[in-house]
Design a protein around this nucleic acid. Sequence first.
DNA 1: TTGTACGCGTTATCAT
DNA 2: ATGATAACGCGTACAA
Lengths: 352, 352
Amino acid sequence: MATGKKTYQNTILDIAEALRLSPATISRALNNHPYVKEKTRKDVIEMAAKLGYRRNHMASGLRSNKSRTVGLIVPRVSMFFHAEVITTIQNDLHKQGYSLIICQSNDSVSMEKELTETLYASRVDALIAACTLQTIDFSHFDKFTENGTPVIFYDRVPVEPYRATIVKGDDFNGAYQATSHLIAAGCRKIAHIAGPLTSNLYQDRAAGFAKAMEEHGLELRTDWIFHQELSAENAMRAMRQMFAGGEVPDALFADNDTTAIAAIQFANEKGIAVPAALKVAGYSNDPRTAIITPPITSVEQFPETVGKRIVEALTGLLNSDAAEPGYITKAVVVPVQLVSRMSTSTINKNTI
Amino acid sequence: MATGKKTYQNTILDIAEALRLSPATISRALNNHPYVKEKTRKDVIEMAAKLGYRRNHMASGLRSNKSRTVGLIVPRVSMFFHAEVITTIQNDLHKQGYSLIICQSNDSVSMEKELTETLYASRVDALIAACTLQTIDFSHFDKFTENGTPVIFYDRVPVEPYRATIVKGDDFNGAYQATSHLIAAGCRKIAHIAGPLTSNLYQDRAAGFAKAMEEHGLELRTDWIFHQELSAENAMRAMRQMFAGGEVPDALFADNDTTAIAAIQFANEKGIAVPAALKVAGYSNDPRTAIITPPITSVEQFPETVGKRIVEALTGLLNSDAAEPGYITKAVVVPVQLVSRMSTSTINKNTI
DNA sequence: TTGTACGCGTTATCAT
DNA sequence: ATGATAACGCGTACAA
């Protein structure tokens, strides 16, 4: 029984009219306001269903100054770690009635800035961001904090204090554990394929690596430490360089799994026995590390836990109206765990 | 030079006041309306920047009846194929000034229904969906089509005609090619680890498999064809069953890569030589297939192309105002390509 | 418990 | 080329 009107958009006014009530009552009934007779509420809900009424978020958001929407900026949704974090966040926020607008910076600072503008225009109730590796200046997030809109950084976070919540993995400890593990396996000449020092991630991992090396009086050889974008090509080039002749390392700690995998492939091609002649550890526990031959020791970051911590922090911030504009909370540090696999095993087993 | 007011939200009225112009002119200037003097536009843009003005999307959307937002429903953002598709869609839509609200159904039909409600409430300008494997009834999408809001299904799409655009991979051909490839490699006893027939994906792949088998007069043995959820556990169980004794298959076509990988792992454990004694082909060309030993032959689905086709279709629909409510376009079929690797090689090389 | 009336920030429609 | 004004759909003081 369609109405004769040309548009199919029913509003609370249509329900009010049909029920001979005022729009205010309809609004209250639909929002579980206490001062509504049960019978009335029932009637309203019934009529709403009958008319196919659906709330217009833009109108209610405009009026209430709440969009019930959270913005998220990540370098790339297809990175395993981020995909897992997003999965958790989106599911948990949905339960609380929030939608997630997901944006990718493609690791470009200018894109990141643009996206903050877009998300601000959407008046997101909060912003979650894993920044670009090159983001050093964070002032494009100021418009949110100045406004009382909570900002949560995770993974790639500001190094300087910033008026935002921070959730991060324990990168220092992850690198320290991985390196210590290599040393405990008897390695003394350990190379490090490392990420750019513009990011907190690789600063911390480099520090953890250095700490473990120093504790055992091992030398940090600059010709075996490569700070560069963590691509397979760069890793291959580094490997070629180190194994070009002369002294070679007996272990490699890689700051991510893509480069660890590339190193394994290099070793397999060149007939370098892993783990006998070269032990390798990576970072992130990407699914590929468990599958390659030999399986690679890596540092698990528990993306699901990271997601949960983010939502926990968010829940607090969203429900305490008007976040204090002065707070700087201590970073939430999510523990990591070394997952030991064949690539660092001391049981002498030739895999070639 | 902050204003004395307590809220930091500047509106076009503030700009109008500061410039002694009317809000209408400000709006026009900001929207590149032709009837605005250049000097005025310049002044407005300058003052907007000075006051830190940022458009309120909810207000403009409410008035213009366009949210410049697109909804997306996928089973899970962390599935490799979907993550890649999303990456492309989000980047391309951003260029056109659209935001993407991404939701996960977790492969639950009821969640999928819920999400359509949420996205309708947000008045998305279009909806993109990869449905649940169990979605047979698509009526929860009717509210969009009835309203002229474009709906685009991809990957998991309705089998019956539906008033929506469809973008899909050539599943029939992918399965046909993979199976033919196994047959050409000399296999005659080919098993099929298949997905549930509720989804178009697995209907088509099953048909392609059957077609190739029949063309060569090969028997479809029901005890070697498993229609089930495509999990590693299920695949392992199927493998155990087939290799429990008696006659064993000489090849396996798996409907996804997770199950193909499980099969390889089973073979490696049991000392079944791949490809010598058993050849294996998977589907999707997951990154893991290239990395495992032996590397697995798989069907590439070109997620980036799928994303591009979706955005192309969308661009047309979003710009032609009021989509004709009667159109049913022919499905856009994205070609697939078999990527041949060691797991189906005929060069006899024992990998154990 | 319900109704009246106004405003959220923007854009569309007239008028000038 | 610009201004005045009325909507868009909803929520909420205030009144009843």
